[in-house]
Simulated assay, not measured.
Amino acid sequence: MTRRFIGRSLQALASLALGTSLWLNAASALAADAYPSRPIQLVHGFGAGGNADVVARLVAQKLGEALGQPVVVDIKSGAGGAIASANVAHAKPDGYTLIMLTGAHTVSGALRQNLPYDSVNDFAFISTVSSFPFVVAVKADHPAKNLADLIAMSKTKGVSFSSVGVGSTQHMVGELLAAESGGEFLHIPFRGGGAPALAVLSGDVDMLSDTLTVAAPHLQSGSLRALAVTSAETWPLTPAIAPAAKTLPDFEVRSWLGLAAPKGTPNAIVQDINQKLHAILAQEDTQKALAQVGSMAAPSTPEAMQAQIKSEIERWKTVADRRNIKVE
C-alpha cells in the first residue's frame, strides 16, 4: 500500500514537473512572440560622440525601425565600460535592456580583479556589429617617419604613449607594441577621449594609439602623422597607412563593437535581434555610416561572439602578465 502510494506520488510529481516545464516553455515562446511591446534601452559605457556612441545610435535607429519600437541609447560611462556592463549584467533578462559592448569588455575581463559580473557567463551575446583597427600616430614634426623608426627610438631613449586610461584597449595596444618589439614604451594615461591626442599634439607625449574616430580629424589637418594601423593587412578604409604587421610580423589588434543582453534573455529574442541586425549591417547606408568612423560591418553568430570574447580575454591576460600590469 505504502509502495503504491509513493509510486503514485512520484508519478504525480513527475507529471507536475513536466506540465510546469511545458507551461514555462509556452510562456517564454508567447513572450517572445509579443516582443517588443515597449521601448528598448541600449546601454553603452563611453562618452557622447565617441566610437561606441556613434555606432550605438546608428544601430538604435535601425533596430528600432526593424522591431517597431524605439531603441533609446543610455550612456553609463566610467571604469572602461565596466559600469555599463555591470548595469546590464544585473538587469532583468527580458530583451528590454541591451548593451553595445566594445573590445574594452575583454580588456576589463582580463585585467580587473574585482568586477561585479562575469565577462562571459553573465551575458547573452547577440552579434558583433563592427570591427576596426587602431591608428599609431605621432605629431607631424616627430622624428620617427615610420613604425620601424619609432621602435628603434624606443630601444635607445624610450618612447612615451598616451591613452584614455590604465586598462583601456588603447593602453594595451602600446603595451603589446612594447612586448612584441622589445622596446621601452612609457604609458601616460589621461582622462577624456580627446586628451591623449592633445598631449601628442602639444609635444608632451610621443605617440598615441587610438581609433580613427579620434585620430582622423588630426590626420586630415596634417597635425598628426600616422605610422601604422594595427591590422594584419592594409585596412581597406586607410589604404595609405601601412599595417603594423609589416614591421612586426603577426602584430594585430582589431577592436570591435557588439550587442549583448543579460544572461537568461530568451533565445527566441536573441535570435530575432541577431537576424534583424544582420539585415541592418547588410544595408549599404549602414556600411557607409560605419566607414565614416573607420569601422567595417562584422556580423556574427551569438556563439562566435562569445568565443571571440573568451579568446581575447586570454590574450590580454598574457600581455598583462608579460608587462606586469595590475588593475584594481
Rank of each mutant, 00 (worst) to 15 (best):
R4I: 07
R4T: 10
R4F: 09
F5P: 12
F5L: 14
R8Q: 13
Q11W: 10
L16R: 14
L18F: 10
G19D: 01
T20D: 11
W23V: 14
L24Q: 15
N25P: 01
A26D: 13
L30R: 14
L30Q: 15
A32W: 06
H44F: 02
H44N: 08
N51Q: 11
D53W: 04
V55S: 07
V55M: 02
R57T: 06
R57P: 07
V59H: 06
Q61G: 15
Q61A: 10
K62W: 04
L63M: 08
A66W: 03
Q69A: 08
P70C: 00
I75F: 07
S77M: 14
S77V: 11
A79R: 14
A79C: 05
G80I: 03
A84H: 02
S85N: 13
N87C: 11
V88A: 03
P93S: 05
P93V: 01
D94A: 06
Y96L: 07
L98T: 03
L98Y: 02
L101I: 13
T102E: 15
G103T: 06
A110T: 04
L111I: 02
R112E: 15
R112W: 09
N114C: 04
L115V: 06
Y117S: 04
D118G: 05
V120G: 07
N121D: 15
T128M: 11
F132G: 08
F134M: 13
F134C: 06
F134Q: 15
A137K: 02
K139T: 09
K139P: 07
D141K: 03
D141A: 09
P143N: 04
P143R: 03
P143K: 00
A144I: 03
A144E: 02
L147W: 01
A152M: 09
M153D: 11
K155A: 02
K157N: 12
S160I: 00
S160F: 01
G165M: 02
G165H: 04
G174T: 00
L176G: 10
A178I: 00
E180T: 12
G182I: 01
G182A: 00
L186F: 12
I188T: 15
I188E: 15
R191E: 15
G193H: 14
L198V: 13
A199M: 03
V200S: 05
G203Q: 02
V205A: 01
V205W: 00
D206V: 03
D206Y: 01
L212W: 13
V214K: 09
P217S: 02
S223K: 12
R225V: 08
A226N: 04
T230G: 05
W235L: 01
P236C: 01
A240Q: 15
P249V: 06
P249I: 05
E252M: 11
V253L: 13
R254P: 04
A261E: 00
P266C: 10
Q271M: 13
Q271Y: 09
D272E: 14
N274R: 12
K276L: 09
K276V: 10
L277E: 10
E284C: 02
A289P: 14
L290N: 07
G294H: 03
S295H: 14
M296H: 10
A297C: 03
A297G: 08
A298E: 10
P299W: 01
P299D: 00
P299V: 03
S300D: 00
S300C: 05
P302D: 02
Q306L: 08
I309F: 09
K310D: 05
I313E: 06
W316G: 07
T318A: 13
A320N: 06
D321H: 14
R322M: 08
R322K: 13
I325L: 12
K326W: 06
